[in-house]
């Protein structure tokens, strides 16, 4: 009897594809490194209160990266972490970045109290460029969300998001598809119903596939051997649609191809953006997720 599984269990033949940077459209900044007030079970870089692998960026580091990218004609900026609102100088960072272009900030929402919500909404209304706040929520019930993001986080996250919305800034909700059915139409409808109950009547939702690295590897299992990219798998269109053909990530430790790979060995490209303009090798299994799922981290 022939075992049909054999063929797909093997890694693909041939070298991993190389990908040129077409133009730096998107600059990511890991402003709070791997430090977070939560320790989500699906975090692909295992962020948490004690993970100082990537420390906080200093204000001047952020300014330097933003100004360098702006001089290159960058189109948009993203702040992530860890939890960006843990940084004592986050407001200065937001303000200086919005001078140069649109900004999205990725947060778990827990630290957004009324005062911060009002400041963020005022910034949204006064900035020259678009300003988005993306709040991560992983379910429509406490049970569903808290199993991933930690005990009692559901109400804290929604509370922050609702305060933002009431202040006049409509956030984007980002949902990882650890519960796969959430991305389907019935799952979406559950989000719409939940948010409508909380007064958010123009909901904005974004779904992202989980990456099977970091803490998610322990939760959901590791990549299989066949989950790899090889040269022949990518046509021009696929190359252009991969976000790493137009983005780079800056952390306190240097420059990386994308937000996903900052803890992966060999991914660091150099100290400054100028060092990181060369091609990258798509030799990591996480690259397979971006390709197969069509993942883009953009809002």
């Amino acid at each position: 009897m022939i075992d049909l599984n054999l063929a797909i269990d093997r890694p693909p033949e041939g070298p991993a594809p190389e990908l040129e940077l077409r133009h730096l459209d998107t600059l990511w900044l890991q402003v709070t490194g791997t430090l977070c007030n939560l320790a989500c079970r699906h975090c692909f870089i295992s962020c948490g209160p004690k993970n100082e692998s990537h420390p906080f960026m200093e204000l001047e580091e952020v300014r330097r990266a933003v100004e360098t990218a702006a001089a290159m004609g960058v189109k948009e900026f993203y702040f992530t972490g860890g939890e960006p609102f843990m940084h004592p100088q986050i407001r200065e960072m937001i303000a200086l970045t919005l001078e140069h272009g649109p900004l999205s900030i990725l947060t778990n929402g827990v630290l957004i109290d009324e005062e911060l919500a009002a400041w963020l909404a005022e910034t949204f209304h006064n900035a020259r460029y678009n300003f988005d706040v993306r709040v991560s929520l992983d379910g429509t019930t406490p049970e569903e969300n808290d199993a991933i993001r930690g005990r009692h986080t559901f109400e804290k996250i929604l509370g922050g998001a609702v305060r933002l919305h009431e202040a006049g800034l409509n956030p984007v909700f980002t949902v990882t598809t650890c519960h796969a059915e959430l991305a389907e139409s019935a799952g979406r409808q559950r989000f719409f119903d939940l948010l409508a109950e909380r007064g958010i009547t123009r909901p904005r939702l974004k779904f992202l596939a989980p990456f099977k690295i970091g803490r998610e590897e322990r939760r959901g299992g590791a990549y299989e051997d066949f989950e790899r990219l090889s040269e022949g798998m990518l046509d021009e269109e696929a190359r252009a649609s991969l976000q790493c053909s137009s983005c780079r990530m800056v952390t306190a430790k240097g420059v990386y191809p994308c937000p996903i790979l900052i803890e992966e060995e060999g991914a660091r490209m150099g100290d400054t953006l100028d060092d990181a303009m060369g091609p990258i090798k798509l030799d990591h299994p996480a690259c397979y997720t971006c390709f197969v799922e069509g993942v883009t981290c953009r809002t």
Binding site: D25, G101, Y129
Partner: peptide, 17 residues
């Protein structure tokens, strides 16, 4: 190309390129 999503320097880059 939305107005709020196009930094001056990005538009300069397009014109130059």
């Amino acid at each position: 190309l939305w107005e709020s999503m196009c930094p001056d320097a990005f538009l300069e880059h397009l014109l130059k390129s």
